[in-house]
Nucleic acid binder design. Structure first.
Length: 486
RNA sequence: GUCUCCAUCGUCUAGAGGCCUAGGACAACGGGUUCUCAUCCCGUCAACAGGGGUUCGACUCCCCUUGGAGAUGCCA
């Protein structure tokens, strides 16, 4: 048996939907879990839907996700070109060959003005699956005459509507569809471009794709593709149809994941502070599981664990809450330097006093966020002390009052002042002995100092950590200001 | 309308006839550790859509119903 070859064939129509990314991931995983190859092919046969820059988004998304391709438009390969618009003459050639083989016919019907007009509901009552003008019955002479007169044409698949087509899918098993429900689909459009239905078959064959991994929206048209392979006398690839990714709206209705459910593109999620590796980890588990209880995986670990047997049939609902949890897990696993570098742009501290202390600060907030966008609000009080009154010093649990806080600050400020540097190592012993001498719980002086430094009842880290980040000068200024209000 | 597919806690899922008084994870709730918050640890709540078969025995196999999704484009 030859090596597995899979492909990802996106259309450059804009952002990368996580459903598409998951398809790419599984195709890649399938190739990488063996010693196979992974091919990137750009399917730009619909010029109307082409979006400028979309190809770059595809490259950058795959790169950020860690999904590398062995062959593609940018790095070449022996089956190129890998952009369908550049393969245009090829499709016409094969379409004409298919006509000769009897698997297709020229159709000279007028372009349908409005695809959404009228009788869609009852279309099967009027449609027999053939072209509306029954061009499949045209004689060779009639066809030649029209062709010679330069009549615009397209090429349709000629389907023998007797019998049934059966195929086996790696996920869904055996599926049988009666040929009489199949339509003579258009293979080559009037503009000479192939449709997905055609280009896909030609390219997958020519590029030696062994396993076609795609969404299960293609499940019911697969027989048509198989008939095409058969007409050409080509070997039919293995199919891996993936269950859809769903979204749930506020009313609890489930439907195909779209913008109304939240961010659905990879780049949006990254902007919202999700890590590429967390997104990849999460979507890998939408429709697949490793048959163990483990859930946190890096990309290489996924490649190691991946198997078609773990694929699921039922559609899965995208759960942002679980993604957040998974993101926080990846955040915690990350090396400190890596986290600091990655989180810095989100912190918006460039050019501020905090920039120098960022590595320390980053470690303080790391376990307290689920996404990177939460950072600014968490560190706001470092930039500027919030407004607060003396009653903030009241705390039941640590039995602190403004009066007590006053005496604590009066005692501690000179001691802090005497220190060369304010770090947990130097500050904490002073606060601890303060509590010990007073015979109170540590929480009491901690509270008094924390409030004075931050104006906040809850802070990332404790007073000593805050002072460490704030620096001696700013720390002392805040402590004195706190004392002054008491 | 027609065709195809799917169906276990709110969500992601384990389960390939007895191991299931249905397991794990997220969320929620409660508790513990801790100077606050968070982390971490422990616990609680929570599901086999319904009905028929087959079988000594069904979450697992078959059928029907119901519900959901997809296809039915000169989109992919």
């Amino acid at each position: 048996m030859c090596d597995i070859r899979t492909r990802f064939a996106p259309s450059p129509t804009g952002f990368m939907h996580v459903g598409n990314l998951r398809t790419a991931l599984y195709a890649w995983l399938l190739a990488r879990s063996g010693k196979g190859s992974f091919v990137l092919r750009i399917e730009d046969t619909d010029q109307n839907r082409y979006v400028e820059g979309a190809v770059d988004i595809i490259y950058s998304t795959l790169k950020q996700a860690g999904i590398d391709h062995d062959e593609g438009p940018d790095n070449g390969g022996k089956y190129g070109p890998y952009i369908q618009s550049e393969r245009k003459p090829l499709y016409k050639e094969y379409a004409q060959k298919l006509v000769e083989l009897g698997g297709a016919y020229y159709c000279f019907c007028e372009k349908c003005e409005d695809p959404n007009d009228g009788t869609e509901e009852n279309k099967n009552e009027f449609s027999d699956g053939r072209c509306p003008g029954h061009c499949d019955e045209l004689s060779p002479e009639e066809i030649k005459a029209k062709l010679d007169a330069n009549t615009p044409y397209m090429i349709r698949q000629r389907i023998d509507r007797s019998g049934a087509t059966m195929f086996s899918d790696a996920v869904f098993g055996e599926i049988e569809i009666e040929n009489k429900v199949l339509d003579d689909q258009i293979l080559l459009k009037q503009d000479g471009m192939p449709t997905y239905n055609f280009a896909n078959v030609i390219d997958d064959h020519l590029m030696g794709i062994t396993h076609v991994v795609r969404g299960c929206e293609y499940l019911s048209s697969t027989p048509k593709y198989n008939l095409l392979y058969k007409a050409f006398g080509w070997e039919i690839p293995s199919y891996v149809h993936l269950p859809l990714i769903m979204g749930k709206d506020a009313e609890g209705n489930v439907s195909k994941l779209s913008k109304r459910h939240g961010s659905v593109s990879f780049e949006n999620l990254v902007e919202e502070g999700f890590l590429p590796e967390a997104i990849v980890n999460y979507i890998a588990f939408l429709g697949w599981n490793p048959k163990s209880d483990r859930e946190i995986f890096s990309l290489p670990e996924l490649a190691e664990a991946f198997s078609l047997a773990g694929l699921n049939k039922a559609p899965a609902v995208f759960d942002y809450t679980k993604l957040r949890w998974m993101n926080s897990e990846h955040l915690k696993m990350m090396a400190p330097e890596k986290f600091a570098a990655l989180a810095k742009p989100f912190a918006k501290i460039s050019g501020t006093a905090l920039e120098e202390k960022w590595p320390i600060l980053a470690e303080l907030i790391r376990s307290r966020i689920e996404t990177l966008v939460e950072i600014p609000e968490k560190i706001a009080f470092f930039h500027e002390l919030p407004q607060f009154g003396a009653d903030m010093f009241n705390n039941k649990k640590s039995k602190c009052t403004p009066e007590i806080a006053k005496s604590i600050l009066e005692e501690l400020i000179p001691k802090f002042e005497a220190l060369a540097e304010l770090t947990p190592d130097t500050v904490n012993p002073l606060i601890e002995s303060c509590a010990a001498e007073r015979g109170v719980k540590l929480g009491q002086p901690m509270w008094a100092v924390r409030i004075s430094l931050s104006g906040l009842p809850a802070t990332p880290g404790g007073p000593a950590e805050i002072m460490n980040v704030l620096g001696k000068e700013e720390s002392m200024r805040r402590l004195k200001a706190g004392l002054a209000m008491l």
